[in-house]
Design a protein around this nucleic acid. Structure first.
Lengths: 98, 98
DNA sequence: ATTTTACTTTCCAACTGAGAAAGACAGCGG
DNA sequence: CCGCTGTCTTTCTCAGTTGGAAAGTAAAAT
């Protein structure tokens, strides 16, 4: 028999799920805001974002604003689509019988 | 800052999420049916169920029915509660802004 | 007594995810 | 021009998870 469940492991991990969900509603966020909300260390956030970036799910926008460097993170359309699909899949699993 | 997200890792893992979701709708299921739907090996299902059992989330009912042993698995009320809480938490993350 | 059914447990190999620490790099202050 | 600071990024290391195969267990059928 074939797997019915097709959760995207890149999105499913709790921290990345939250990252994607935040970006899905907010369009884009600063690295530091994301780090504070998700409550992880710089290195951890950086690595999660890199994974999402490598998959083409997010885009990093680096601006030198008012002297200091700021990194903004945004879902790409592919990332948004993957997130929506993942959520649909989650609901399929979880809402069955609700 | 404190973690806002509180997903239960015991439930969040894809296979166990599906196991819990199935049990949440079906009240109880046979080991083999569960194994076929979740599409894992005997050993893997056995281990997942053991983890849920150790946490008090499921109960194992072993019946010798028509000669052959059958193991039924059912959520306990604690497991049902934990699942509902987990789902609520998931929705909190994922549905924000929907 | 041996085989079969139905799991359970052990063994192992692969993969993940986390933080600390070290790096990289741009801009500022002196 | 140089080192310091802020803002990430990368490396190192380690602990925990997951999965399948194989071996183990127990009861029932042959």
């Amino acid at each position: 028999m074939n797997k019915i469940v097709r959760l995207d492991p890149l999105i499913h991990a709790p921290n990345r799920l939250q990252i994607c969900a935040l970006l899905n509603q907010m369009e884009r966020m600063e690295f530091q805001a994301l780090r504070d909300i998700v409550d992880v260390s710089d290195s951890v956030l950086s690595k999660h974002i890199k994974q999402l970036d490598d998959a083409g799910y997010v885009r990093l926008i680096k601006k030198a604003e008012g002297g200091r460097q700021r990194t903004w993170v945004a879902l790409t359309s592919s990332g948004r689509k993957a997130f929506k699909t993942h959520v649909k899949e989650l609901k399929k699993i979880v809402d069955l019988g609700n």
